[in-house]
Nucleic acid binder design. Structure first.
Lengths: 245, 245
DNA sequence: CATATTGGTATCTAAATGGTCTCAAGACAC
DNA sequence: GTGTCTTGAGACCATTTAGATACCAATATG
């Protein structure tokens, strides 16, 4: 069984560009579980020959799906259907560490990085006195170039000299100053993205997402971090292993 | 019976690299308890010969699984399936018990309660032989009279005499027959409700929900239960306490 | 203790694969 | 016409995969 028999054919009568037709075929195949996570696509050259189109066309089609986060390319290895990111809900880890552990390349785009004063609400959850200084970090998180999550963090200012101290990983920065949380409370719920959020993440408006609110605590029990993360529902799985008592 | 007959074969037609195919085969075998803790793998040289690949390829596959903690190597001795590390992060409880613990009153409305045969997909996750009988339970779960979740459960038939044995709580019924799961794997993701689901739960169509898929295992490692629960995103929070390792 | 077996490591080769580039032809909108 | 988009052909590079072979180090066995 050839690959194109599995996923469907291109239609010569269709007037849409070839690469868009191919994208549609692949998108459908992934949506209908004809292609599963980590399934390998044929090599670009083989794929092109099989479809009777040029490699350029195949690449152009794949380019789009890669930037959507549907496919993952590895030079020298091949192109694969992106596995949903499986985040372990039982382990305290940061986005950066998580992605690296999965062989994906994380990066962030800053929305803002500011100093400010605690809001009354934050002063309760962080246990700070009113008027205490905090740092705020808002950013978009990417994996292999595809947006995965929006992250809004508030940090007690005592744990680092300035907001610019955070280069990429929040937890890495906290590690350096010896203020990395060792315990956290997490709450998780399903939400609908607002239009603005959907736009930032490149998903459809009113798509489903996961809101995870985390409060991180130091060894001595002080709260140091409050983070609200909005994860793409179509790209994220949370996995937990449970045990009876 | 050769080892590769136990765990499955590699597929020449698959475009994925050989070592990844082998990883997948082994991962599945471990997940489905075809390979249990401390089971020995063939020696690398033998394994390579049996599979018709080079030792390098076998080693590369094992390298990955070892770094994931699924396998353990002992030089001069062999490679073994890692004994599972038991961690008590959360408590394995049922909807009924959960609601009672929160001071709410649970009840259910049956959508269906039937006997049937395993689907091929279920036979993999439940580790049943094809054609084995199962019970299916579909219902709406309420708390204080308000619909909270849709629950689709499949149970291996050996764990109770008939589907009618389940009155309200699935886990209570399993407790009685001594087949209550002691361990579970849960995965959780955000989804959009279908119109039908939204109607059943009394929420707006295309509202956000949480899909929780749970596989429950007995003490002896047999899988006994697969449940997919769709929780209302606006009414359900999941809370977890995490600890750094 | 000796020996065989096992995993651990290293070096080399070859092939396959994505990444990138140049050059060009045709369709279409402005 | 002019520019843009699409598609094609071909070349070359860096990386990954896979294999062959040899030898070392730890362990099991007798």
């Amino acid at each position: 069984m050839t690959f194109s028999e599995r996923i469907g054919q291109l239609d010569a009568k269709d007037h849409a560009p070839l690469y868009r037709q191919l994208q549609k075929v692949l998108r459908d195949a992934i949506a209908n579980h004809i292609l599963g996570p980590d399934d390998a696509l044929p090599a670009e050259r083989d794929f092109a020959e099989e479809l009777g189109v040029s490699r350029i066309t195949v690449r152009k089609a794949l380019d789009g799906l890669v930037s959507e986060g549907l496919l993952v390319r590895r030079q020298g290895a091949g192109t694969f259907v992106a596995a949903r990111v499986e985040k372990n809900f039982s382990k305290l880890s940061s986005f950066t560490e998580d992605m690296i552990a999965r062989g994906r390349i994380p990066h962030s785009a800053w929305l803002s990085r500011t100093e400010g004063l605690v809001t009354p609400e934050e002063s309760l959850t962080l246990g700070l006195s009113p008027g205490a200084p905090v740092y705020r970090f808002n950013r978009i998180r990417f994996a292999d170039g595809a947006p995965m999550a929006l992250e809004y963090s508030t940090l007690a200012a005592f744990c680092m000299p300035s907001p610019e101290f955070v280069e990429t990983s929040l937890y890495e920065a906290l590690e350096k100053t010896g203020h990395r949380p060792v315990r956290a409370l997490q709450r998780l719920r399903a939400v609908l993205f607002t239009d603005e959020q959907a736009e930032l993440l490149g998903v459809a408006p009113r798509d489903a997402g996961l809101l995870i609110e985390r409060r991180g605590f130091l060894k001595d029990g002080r709260a140091v971090e409050v983070t609200q993360s909005y994860y793409r529902g179509d790209a994220y799985d949370f996995v937990a292993e449970l045990n009876a008592l």
